[in-house]
Amino acid sequence: MHSTRLTRRSALRYGAGLASGVLGPTLLTGCGSSASADAFPDRPIQVIIAYAAGGGTDVGARILQPYVEAELGVPIEVVNRPGGGGWSGWNEIVTAEPTGYVIGFINTPNFMTGYLDPRLGRTEISYENFTPLGNQVTDFSAVAIHPDDDRFDDLPGVINHARGQALTVTSTGVGSDDHYASLGLSDRYGTQFDVLHGEGASDGITALLGRHVDLAFANVGELKSLHDDGELKVVGVMADGRQRSPHLPDVPTFEEEGFGGFSSWSSRGLAGPANIDPRVVDKLAGAIKRGIQNREHIGQLAEQGLAVDYRSPSEHKKMLIRDERTTRQLGTKYIWG
């Protein structure tokens, strides 16, 4: 109940300020002066979601919202800015005043594709235009087959088959994690894939269920319930090392099956624009950390098959650097090079 009320109340408060024409806060804002850093936060914080309301990132953000609100003591307004492959929202984070009052979720590696692909005209941007504030979720890529497929029924079988004859595989779009997963696999293990790009995970999963494609590349969270129901069979998870996904305990990782050295995931974490006052970053990062690590939050995300993977701002940054390196390498070689 409380999340509903907080959302409503925050909207009301913000709106009431507008209607009665309160001018005060405008005059106080500037570029992260020390006084405002001490007072932070003294007004609502906007969290920008680069995807539509009701989508995966949005749902995750709204689940997290009350826990971080409780930590910060000010309302959080979730603002959806879908469009431009996410860049309608991410642009807004980049260009926001670095006060800490405008932050948002960034989703890798789709986010990297948006500025690394020179055709999209954002090459002046990099992860350095953002201040990482902590990672919320990491959802590993996985490969699924149709349970009735008699050509293969495990990962080595799939890879051996794909070395001799091209298999059709799904992807959630050019430069998505699923696309990089199949590109990376072919790059390393010499498999041949004809990639079928769709507009969302459900496109690809439908194609596999209807046996129109040979393999589905998707994320654990998207495959879990169908795997549990036996509608499709996940043959491998592209996790780091041998640690299996708690949501798919019966599925081996790629490394377990002898195809190590390559992992793929989509992650989402919070970030603000560059050059936020370090003291403001500390306050935000602390609240975000406690919010993400809250047991109730972890439990609610687990119900959706999503693994909470908290990473501190410095680890989050390392993750972004690593993601950018893989994305640049595969993208330059296969997509826009």
């Binding site: 009701g54 989508g55 995966g56 949005d58 879990k224 319930s225 129901d229 509608e231 119900e303």
Partner: peptide, 13 residues
């Protein structure tokens, strides 16, 4: 999204 918010995974469940 509304289903997932309620923790209900579509499928045979």
């Amino acid at each position: 999204g509304g289903l997932l918010v309620q923790g209900m995974q579509p499928g045979h469940e």
